[in-house]
Amino acid sequence: MGFERKLAALSSLRPDIAILCEVACPERLRSQLPVLEGMPIVWVGNKANKGLAVVSFTGSRIELDSSYRSNNQFVAPVHVSGAKSFRLLATWDHNDRTEGLNRRPGPLLRCLVDSADFCSRGDLVVAGDFNNNPRWDKPNGPNNMSVLAQELARRQLVSLYHRGTGEAFGSELRGTYWHYRRSAMPYHIDYLFVPMTWLTDLVSFELGDYDAWCANGLSDHAPLSAEFRDTETYLTPPSRV
């Protein structure tokens, strides 16, 4: 929300591909920010002022896969074609409990099935706001974060934060989201999963901090960003930025 006052902060990350949650549709974005004119944008949502966007800042082609289903809400299978081509499952996993998600898998887990062919390739990246952490898992819950983490690990995907810190899911020492923007209420709910085969080309991974992104009113989330050798590809899901 309010993306026009946050673009400078996002641009400072030098993104190639950015995943943005709770952002307006392309027409509204471009009317507010002419600099976005000509930049490829894939957007999904049912309200013009709040959806999920994937933005290509450096010319990579992006295209929504035909397997996308609107009942999976804000989980978008996107083809990225450029210096580094890959398949991106951009995620704002809107885990609304009124949908009965304590009784059935959530949108991200459903998308892994509904877009099975898209997700079966070895170049899959899954990134964004999962709105989930094992601390909230229910006994045998079908939407548990531990279930999702195991499913992604089965696909040979690794969370860059957990790979770098050695921390277990649910035991993270750093948050990515601060409830009511309060520094004393951190939660780790944003993730960046990449293929294990990419790790040899990983140059850096960064998680923004509270002071830089939340204390100044930019967002209640901090961005995760990664750079890979040769392609200078950045994957940045600064939710609500």
Rank of each mutant, 00 (worst) to 15 (best):
V35A: 14
R135T: 09
D117Q: 14
S60G: 01
R103H: 09
R155F: 08
D190A: 08
F118I: 00
A24I: 03
D93S: 14
W198M: 14
S219L: 13
Y177Q: 08
V78S: 07
N144T: 04
D209I: 11
L157Y: 09
L192M: 06
G141M: 03
E63F: 05
P26E: 09
T233I: 15
D211N: 10
V194K: 07
L13M: 14
S219D: 12
R181Y: 04
S183T: 04
R103S: 12
G128A: 05
V78P: 12
N72L: 04
L13A: 10
A215Q: 06
R155M: 15
L64Y: 00
M145Y: 13
A215N: 04
D96S: 12
P40C: 03
G166V: 04
P105Y: 05
C21M: 10
G100I: 03
R14T: 07
V113P: 00
V203E: 14
C119F: 00
N140T: 03
C111W: 00
N144D: 08
F74W: 14
R229I: 09
F86R: 05
N133K: 01
F169S: 02
M1V: 11
L224E: 08
C21G: 14
I17V: 13
H179R: 09
N49D: 10
Y234P: 00
F205K: 12
F169T: 02
D201P: 00
D201E: 13
A212K: 05
L199N: 03
R229A: 15
S11T: 11
R154L: 14
Y234R: 11
D93M: 04
L109R: 01
Q73V: 13
M185L: 15
D129G: 02
R135A: 14
S115C: 14
V23S: 04
P34C: 09
H94S: 11
R61C: 11
Y191L: 08
E37G: 02
V126Q: 07
R174E: 10
R240M: 14
R181M: 13
E99P: 01
R104W: 01
G38M: 05
L199I: 13
I17N: 05
L199R: 05
G82V: 09
A226W: 05
R69A: 14
E167Y: 08
C25Q: 12
V113M: 01
G59Q: 03
L36W: 06
V55K: 07
T165W: 11
V75T: 07
S225Q: 10
D117S: 14
L29K: 02
L202A: 08
G2R: 03
F130Y: 07
M145R: 01
M39L: 15
R163C: 11
M196T: 06
N49P: 06
N132P: 02
G217W: 07
T176K: 00
M145Q: 10
R182L: 15
R154Q: 13
L192E: 03
D209W: 01
Q150S: 14
P139K: 02
